[in-house]
């Protein structure tokens, strides 16, 4: 996973709640068997509308998505995170994320930042008025900064440490092999097995 320390970039204000995973990346894109090449599928249906915010020339190259509440509801598809990253987003800000989406994002180094809805509104106003306005998402100091706005955010120490160092969960877990084996040794015999032995 790519490490995340701090990032500064222009923003896309997405004034929609419940941007579900079927909007972020529609199902027909899920047939791909790779982790890349999803950028054209990002918000595919909404992008058909020329007035959609992502289509505006001044939003080209923006890297911070500022979205309405309940971002990423719906399916467990990690493709939603890959699509955002493939497109170039480094961070998503919202007042509420769906659990699985948030878990997936942090495992891939896409920082999902929870801020109060008032702050999201301020960021919307700021970047709508001035598309060149930059937002800094600083994971070291757990702070979002933009012109006239300084907003602290929460992220637990462990998730932050893994992101800052770009650590791979599987290697960390395999370091606990002794614990896993010990647990396996005492699992009851009535637990089902998929293979008949």
């Amino acid at each position: 996973m790519e490490a995340f320390t701090t990032h500064t970039g222009r923003a896309v204000p997405l004034r929609r709640s419940n941007a579900d995973t079927d909007q972020i990346i529609p199902a027909h894109w899920l047939k791909k068997v790779t982790r890349n090449g999803f950028e054209d599928g990002l918000f595919e249906a909404w992008r058909k509308d020329p007035s959609f915010v992502l289509n505006q020339p001044e939003r080209k190259g923006a890297t911070v998505l500022v979205a309405g509440p309940d971002f990423g509801t719906g399916s467990s598809r990690e493709h939603a995170v890959w699509a955002l990253q493939n497109y170039g987003f480094k961070a998503v800000i919202s007042s509420r994320f769906a659990d699985i989406f948030r878990g997936n994002s942090l495992k891939n180094g896409l920082l999902t930042v929870i801020l109060p809805q008032e702050t999201v509104e301020q960021l919307w106003k700021l970047t709508e008025a001035d598309p060149t306005a930059e937002i800094t998402v600083d994971l070291e100091s757990r702070e979002v900064r933009a012109a006239g706005i300084t907003a602290p955010f929460e992220l637990d120490d462990n998730a932050r440490w893994r992101l800052l160092n770009g650590l791979d969960d599987i290697s960390l877990t395999l370091g606990n092999e002794a614990d896993i084996s010990a647990y396996e040794a005492k699992r009851p015999s009535f637990k089902p097995r998929t293979l008949h032995v």
Binding site: S76, I100, G103, K107, I170, T173, L174
Partner: peptide
């Protein structure tokens, strides 16, 4: 519960 693909890999490799 549902999990993402990174977690699918994690469970395949570690069963945890």
């Amino acid at each position: 519960f549902g999990i993402g693909t990174s977690q699918v890999e994690h469970v395949l490799a570690t069963q945890t």
